[in-house]
Design a protein around this nucleic acid. Structure first.
Lengths: 173, 173
DNA sequence: AATTCTGATTGCATTTTGCAATCGGTTGCA
DNA sequence: TGCAACCGATTGCAAAATGCAATCAGAATT
């Protein structure tokens, strides 16, 4: 992954950050999956990222200022990766991207429910989510502490679809 | 460029469409630059795309349903590339991406003025722009014909910044 | 003491990219 | 009629990125 700086165009520069097949997947798993450790990202990735690519992209995202790394007090070898504000502010873009993909690409039902909810929730939901991420990753106080976090809400919806699909399959069989 | 279909996640599938360094640049030049021909895209590209990469991406974007190709009546060898609705509906994503890049990346002043105006214009401006693109590329009637198109407005702002920078440089020297 | 888990690194084959040269056909101009 | 410029690509080749499996050393668990 080179860093050409081919032009000062905002879209081009953004593409030089995300214009590969893994960087945004890693950020997606951190943001929506709540993953913070190397192994979580490695094994939890649905798309099966290779460890050398993961290591390379984590390093690159740190150099770009999207992530920071800190020692995990509970384990001398563990590193905790945190999102920076630069990465947290991608939430609206991810929401739009998910919404677009849901319309135009062959998404699976259970994996697109999150995108659907996030689209319907709109800016208020994105703001709440970003606030929660700032709390988790930057240690900032929550604006308005809520009983159900956005991530938990999305996760619950996902699991409900998976359960209903399993039920439908078993009754149909 | 392979088409893995690594997972049915909307973000992943979107990334399998845009997750490279050129596809979105080509769409940007077609959408904001109004380019329709191979040579226009080849020579007009600020980032200097190679002709084989351009040919490959145009083919791929057509396979994905983002572009169509038609003969140019004025020239037996010329092909006109048109955006499909799938591509036109990327305008809000490009607007967000530009806005994000403008905040977090070392954009140049003259190249980011468009992103700034597009961000300030918000959804109404995006809607108007998409309407104009549908007219240009799909032959649809304009909802509300306006004197100044969005593209012309953005282009004029760009040229004003270039001119003022040139003026500033000459008076400073 | 042995096993498992941690965040990586290494080697290697395959694929993709970037670059320059070139292709056969078309057009505009002298 | 000749000829240069232009049309959308294609080809060859070196360099870089990717995907995959094996492996690493230190730390924690059993």
């Amino acid at each position: 992954m080179s860093m050409d700086r081919r032009s000062g165009c905002p879209i081009n520069l953004s593409l030089e950050v995300f214009g590969d097949r893994w960087s945004l997947i890693i950020l997606r798993d951190m943001i929506f999956g709540g993953r913070r450790h190397f192994r979580e990202l490695l094994n939890g990735s649905m798309e099966g990222i290779a460890s050398n690519i993961l290591a390379d992209r984590l390093k690159r995202l740190m150099e770009l200022g999207m992530l920071t790394k800190a020692d995990d007090p509970s384990h001398k070898q563990k590193a905790i990766y945190s999102l920076t504000e630069m990465a947290i502010s991608l939430v609206p873009i991810l929401a739009h991207l998910g919404a677009w993909g849901r319309v135009w690409l062959p998404v699976s039902e259970e994996l697109s429910i999150r995108a659907e909810l996030l689209e319907k929730g709109g800016q208020p939901m994105w703001d709440k989510f970003m606030d929660e991420l700032r709390h988790e990753h930057l240690g900032m106080p929550l604006d308005t502490p809520a009983d159900a976090t956005v991530r938990a809400t999305l996760q619950a919806a996902y699991e409900a679809v998976v359960a209903s699909k399993a039920l439908g399959a078993s009754t149909a069989a």
